[in-house]
């Protein structure tokens, strides 16, 4: 089942850069031979002197962005999420250590890079980036949030890693009212039995799962946790208190991403069951996203199943149910 009840916007990330480039002259962009994936061609044609393509040299891309950022610029640089993290970890550390306003953008994260297969499916980018001090880590859920996030990093400069969609993205959040803010989660649906915390493409799936659960008489709260770091601890703790169990849903390896981040908050603050939906520490393969989501356990059906499991764990006071 594919979550497609939403209108679609073309290239929200590239559009945001091109539009905001006018208002923020300090905005510059560095690419590494993937303008076609980062959707920066429009920015490049509007602001040719503020765009550089350094070729297949991701480390150099982040290093150059750091130099630009230490000269008064907010320097966006991007490539596929796998390369924007794995290939540039130490360069990202230097940018963060220097407090340089470098915004590293990982496009087509994890299984959304479906047709490219395992080498191109960045499933550990959030784990890598979350572990870097002074690094903010965001993941946009839709077109609205993508442009709002870009604007936020310009209004509040700082070293940032953000996951952004390539090409098309759905519109889930209201572009007239929604404003992204670091450290603030947003509740999209309320329910008393379980809370599903999702980020990125998993938000649409979480909403779909909540709908399916509602048909069974289960009330699921859905929270968009687009700021993984800083994370909205209050929202996690109130969900734990008010719904008694949690599910996390992420398009990422289960080690180090959203589920881990939520578990870190719960570990010392609340004793409630948490069931994490994500990729089970395996490499991906080629395939359309919905097929991959089914195969690798991150479909809306998997979220709904996890929600039922979390609720039964709650009923059993955290002890696993005997099969």
């Amino acid at each position: 089942m594919s979550p497609e009840p939403y209108p679609v916007v073309e290239k929200p990330f590239g559009k945001a850069l091109a539009v905001l480039g006018e208002r923020f002259p300090e905005l510059v962009v560095v690419d590494a031979d993937l303008v076609r994936a980062t959707d920066t061609a429009e920015f490049r044609s509007r602001f040719p002197s503020r765009h550089w393509n350094v070729g297949v040299a991701e480390a150099n891309m982040v290093g150059i962005a750091t130099g630009l950022a230490l000269s008064g610029k907010t320097a966006f640089c991007g490539t596929f999420a796998c390369f924007a993290s794995q290939r540039v970890c130490d360069q990202a550390v230097l940018a963060a250590y220097c407090h340089a306003p470098v915004v590293i953008c990982g496009v087509e994260p994890a299984l959304t890079s479906g047709s490219n297969g395992a080498t191109h499916q960045g499933m550990l980018d959030l784990a890598i980036m979350r572990a870097i001090p002074n690094m903010r880590v965001f993941e946009a859920a839709d077109a609205t949030e993508t442009s709002s996030m870009v604007e936020y990093t310009l209004l509040h400069p700082g070293t940032t890693y953000m996951r952004v969609p390539r090409a098309k993205a759905p519109v889930i959040l209201d572009p007239d009212t929604y404003r992204f803010e670091a450290g603030r989660a947003v509740r999209l649906r309320d329910g008393a039995d379980v809370t599903i915390i999702a980020s990125g493409i998993m938000l649409a799936r979480a909403l779909q799962a909540a709908q399916a659960l509602a048909a069974e008489g289960v009330g699921a709260r859905v929270v968009n946790m687009s700021s993984l770091k800083p994370i909205d601890e209050a929202e996690i703790l109130s969900a734990a208190q008010e719904t008694g169990c949690l599910v996390t849903a992420e398009n990422h390896n289960l080690i180090g991403g959203l589920g881990s981040a939520v578990a870190e908050v719960l570990a010392s603050r609340a004793r409630v069951p948490l069931v994490r939906v994500g990729v089970q520490d395996v490499f991906g393969e080629v395939g359309p996203i919905d097929w991959l989501a089914d195969k690798f356990g991150i479909s809306s059906a998997h979220i709904a199943r996890a929600a039922r499991e979390a609720i039964s764990l709650k009923a059993n006071k955290g002890r696993p149910v005997q099969a």
Partner: peptide, 30 residues
């Protein structure tokens, strides 16, 4: 951030020239 006059933190080798390229590009742009 701890020493006046220092432009870039360093210690992890091989990164300085990239940062220098970025600085020189910014100077030219501005």
């Amino acid at each position: 951030h701890r020493v006046p006059g220092v432009e870039v933190s360093s210690g992890s080798l091989g990164q300085g020239l990239s940062v220098g390229v970025g600085m020189a590009l910014a100077d030219r742009l501005d």
